[in-house]
């Protein structure tokens, strides 16, 4: 199931961001010197894409463009969200480097998954004001899942082409499953 730019724009709309047809580039995000930690990843977008490759189901394709469009649009719009995302990414990257000896993006998918599980992300409550792990859950993992499951393609993964959060019109609610 392929994620499209349309899905990313739908996901951005679900957080109140209209792109207005303007292309968003990764240089627009993290472009204000907000990345200064030694443990911050070289390219946060690449790290988010690498994270999405683990967090998203394997049947999903088109992740790179979807995540880049969504994350750039999201962070360009909200400085606090950008700052917290950078902090969460730095914690993720620091753990990957310390415990697995490599940058998160350069780890195998299995090791990226292990990083998350060793950090305890699967049991962490998502909390934007919480601990480092709770913020990883909120700003990274749940952020990506929110984008996916408020997009039409993400909804279709579970048989729902117009998921809540997506203004997909008034046709789908009347249709049966075989229509």
């Amino acid at each position: 199931m392929e994620l499209s730019r349309r899905d990313a724009i739908a996901a951005l709309a679900a957080v109140g961001i209209g792109t207005g047809g303007v292309a968003l580039y990764r240089s627009d995000a993290f472009g204000d010197g907000s990345i200064d930690s030694e443990t911050s990843p070289d390219d946060p977008i690449d790290t988010m894409i690498a994270l999405a490759a683990v967090v998203y189901p394997s049947e999903v394709s088109g992740i790179d463009e979807f995540v880049e469009t969504y994350v750039v649009g999201r962070l360009e719009d909200d400085e606090t969200h950008e700052e917290r995302t950078v902090q969460a990414l730095a914690h993720l990257e620091g753990y990957a480097s310390d415990e697995f000896g490599d940058s998160f993006v350069d780890l195998s998918p299995e090791d990226r998954d292990a990083v998350l599980r060793e950090l305890g992300v699967q049991n962490a409550q998502p909390n934007p004001e919480g601990s480092d792990v709770e913020r990883i859950r909120y700003y990274l993992v749940n952020e990506l899942l929110y984008a996916l499951f408020t997009s039409p393609t993400g909804g279709e993964l579970v048989g729902h082409e117009n998921p809540p959060g997506h203004g997909g019109g008034l046709d789908s609610y009347r249709r049966g499953p075989d229509a």
């Binding site: 967090v55 998203y56 189901p57 394997s58 049991n123 899942l145 499951f149 408020t150 993400g154 993964l157």
Partner: peptide
């Protein structure tokens, strides 16, 4: 629950999440 609520309330990710 809706899909997004179920996804964000599950602790898991990846294929098992679907």
């Amino acid at each position: 629950p809706s899909p997004v609520e179920a996804a964000l309330s599950s602790g898991d990710w990846g294929d098992s999440l679907v």
